[in-house]
Design a protein around this nucleic acid. Structure first.
Lengths: 213, 213
DNA sequence: GCCGAACCGTAACGTACGGTACGGTCTGAA
DNA sequence: TTCAGACCGTACCGTACGTTACGGTTCGGC
């Protein structure tokens, strides 16, 4: 079983269980929400009995799988040393690239799909987990950068939250919803880079102190 | 049965069938994808046999329901007469308000959820239908406005598609994905108006010819 | 009034799948 | 050697639900 408090959860998992969750995750990417307990057991070469012993029930398994993937994506905080405009722009562009790469990845799409499918039905909603480790984690990492830019006079805004959300919108646009709905075969590396650059340029045009360049 | 060609489809439906689809739609909003044929029949006061006769199978019923709702949202094209900046801004703001109202509505959330749940599994993907009548329909209505603004010198851009997508991103930001994932109790009328105004302001700051005001 | 079509309500069928039980195997400790 | 625990594989159970079948009712046309 997995602890219910929403705190750190990568712990308390044996290596075997992690392997099983990896198998479940791969299966989730391939088959979507209509995976069966038997299929997971077969893929992971474990017994259904063990699945139920470890994760309680199907919802528990899905929950653990989502948490397991989330715990893998946790990233290091960024350095706030440099605050000039070009380094800030580079930082923003990096964030944009990373985010686009994440939301266009197979696993992100699969996880968001299953979380959306279960929205408002499962007792513990996967949507909150996905959001916490996706959009909200991004905000938590990006806001210090924005604040640093504001303190150093490179950026000007009053509310960091709305500034972040504007950046978010400029980066993501309609990409995520289209991918979730099955549109678009997938974004190439070049398209991601171009989109990130454009979004950064537009964001600086809106929130940059003065167009020094 | 419903014709398979993706053309206009509000036709070929008797009033009775439309009532049934309305009932199915309400049930879809309430219960999500886990609605049962029996529940639809009970809610619509019709027999399961009729459901199967009219719509083939469960997928067919879902498909018809989505198409039915889509056919109801079809809107009139906008007038392109006025092209000065303030009327253009008003027009954009109206689009933004409408779009925010749509994506935060119960039925839109429910339809997107079921379309996402079935992405890549159902033989006819609901995702395409939802996109065609949502994001793509919006683009088709908005682009003439953007082009008119460009011709009259109020807006300056090279590609209408990317301009539209920027506007889309500025309006929607993280609203839709958060709603689909179960976050946010719902946007108030005031918040929608404020967001629409902000998005329009930002879009004009990026694509307006010169800040005449 | 009679007939067939359309339809309602309900009962029944088949099956996929969540969940459980159980026998067999391995391992590590006493 | 033996015992306990963890685990695999598989068979099994119960049920929900998609799908079909059928008797009864309404209704429009002759």
């Amino acid at each position: 079983m997995l602890q219910a408090d929403g705190t750190l959860d990568g712990e308390r998992l044996t290596e075997r269980q992690k392997d099983v969750l990896d198998a479940a995750l791969r299966l989730l990417v391939e088959e979507g929400d209509n995976l069966t307990m038997a299929a997971v057991a077969r893929r992971a070469s474990c017994s259904k009995e063990s699945l139920y012993k470890w994760f309680g029930d199907r919802d528990g398994l899905l929950n653990a799988t989502v948490r397991w993937q989330a715990s893998k994506v946790r990233v290091a905080p960024v350095d706030q040393g440099k605050v000039d405009l070009i380094s800030l722009a580079e930082s923003l562009e990096g964030f944009a690239r990373d985010w686009l790469k994440v939301i266009s990845s197979d696993t992100s799409i699969a996880l968001n799909r299953v979380a959306i499918s279960h929205a408002g039905s499962g007792r513990d909603n996967l949507g909150a987990i996905v959001l916490d480790n996706g959009r909200f984690a991004l905000a938590k990492r990006l806001k210090p950068v924005l604040d640093a830019g504001k303190r150093s006079g490179v950026l000007v805004f009053e509310d960091a939250e709305t500034a972040f959300r504007t950046f978010f919108g400029l980066v993501a646009r309609d990409v995520q919803i289209r991918l979730l709905l099955g549109n678009w075969p997938g974004m190439t590396e070049a398209a991601i880079a171009e989109d990130a650059a454009r979004a950064t340029r537009q964001f600086l045009a809106l929130y940059g102190a003065r167009k020094t360049q």
